[in-house]
Design a protein around this nucleic acid. Structure first.
Lengths: 184, 184
DNA sequence: GTTTCATGCCGTATTTATACGGTATTGATA
DNA sequence: TATCAATACCGTATAAATACGGCATGAAAC
């Protein structure tokens, strides 16, 4: 069976692993299932509702508006970690991302994504570990990586050793073959 | 001007702040602009292409398939940090999330999201900081928070003090008013 | 066969987050 | 006015990540 682009787009949007919502001047125009779930609603409950319903007071609703506004104007995007509250009262920490469709009128149309922060994540890499793995992925040796990062080759071996121990591998290379999400 | 749900859904999907892609047995059926951009392509280049094009060899393409497969079967979802490679050769670390539409045939239909990890993020909270802020958000005092977490009240004050210093605030409360993404 | 690379094990040092103690001050509130 | 909450500043202690050094081994490359 062959499906249309629209069919697949609708599927992808609704079943996306992150909460997605588009607002016009803080009014929800569309959101997906995951977003509604995160807050304890159904999608139909939220369409054409103001974001005001998520806040306890007008003041709170007003003051939150300006958080990240300048970033939206300058770069078109904004991201932080924030605490949303499920209808049941439970707090949920989310990686929050916003993108404005018009930086000159930042709140006119905004697409936001909310992804729960997974505390119990097995795979958590530090900045240094990501740097080293990136360069390992480019087939550089420890010595070359060290030069690039201005460190001792010994330190790169430390990072490799740490990864090997932490993830129970034989070679640091083995981690890369799990992490290459897309590469040529 | 009044627009249809489909219009808004299309806008939200295409302009989402995270890369989104739906695959059927690892064939791309739909993806958004951000996803194509992350890899250096245009959306039209990618439609109905196999994910194979992102990998250097058949072996790599095959071996990556099984990463997270069991998690997809068990829970319907999988997330990790992975390194994607832009067409230009630049490596980009992404927070990767996958959700299968059918856990019994995990790869039949999968929606994936790719969000670049922002190394230079100003706001980075530790697990403990998130726990304390969550409970502060519930109007608990340091003493009450300490009891909940099985810690000394003194330690909660430490966390508050750290946040105040790090973010240049007068009161730890001030951070919360910036982080309440949605609460009642 | 010698060099190179990755790994493994020995050590030291610094920084940061966490956790705790005491004490003092301010501001709200009972 | 007395109490409590939050803050500020003094201290100590541990654990983990980072960074570096030396040295030994095994495997692959030249």
């Amino acid at each position: 069976m062959k499906h249309s682009d629209d069919y697949f787009r609708r599927l992808a949007f609704d079943e996306a692993p992150t909460g997605l919502v588009l607002t016009e001047n803080r009014i929800i125009r569309i959101c997906n299932r995951r977003f509604a779930e995160l807050l304890g609603y159904h999608v139909e409950d939220l369409l054409n509702q103001s974001f005001r319903i998520f806040y306890g007071s007008d003041e709170e609703f007003e003051s939150i508006r300006d958080v990240g506004l300048s970033k939206l104007q300058e770069t078109g995007g904004y991201t932080d970690e924030r605490l949303i509250r499920h209808r049941s009262g439970q707090g949920i920490w989310c990686q929050f991302r916003a993108r404005t469709l018009n930086p000159d009128a930042p709140l006119e149309r905004v697409v936001m994504s909310f992804a729960p922060i997974n505390e119990a994540q097995t795979l958590r890499l530090s900045k240094r570990e990501r740097q080293v793995l990136d360069l390992m992925n480019q087939r550089l040796t420890s010595k070359e990586i060290a030069r690039r990062l201005g460190l001792s080759p010994r330190t790169i071996d430390d990072v490799r050793g740490r990864l090997i121990k932490r993830f129970g591998l034989r070679r640091a290379e083995d981690l890369l073959s799990q992490l290459r999400g897309a590469s040529h």
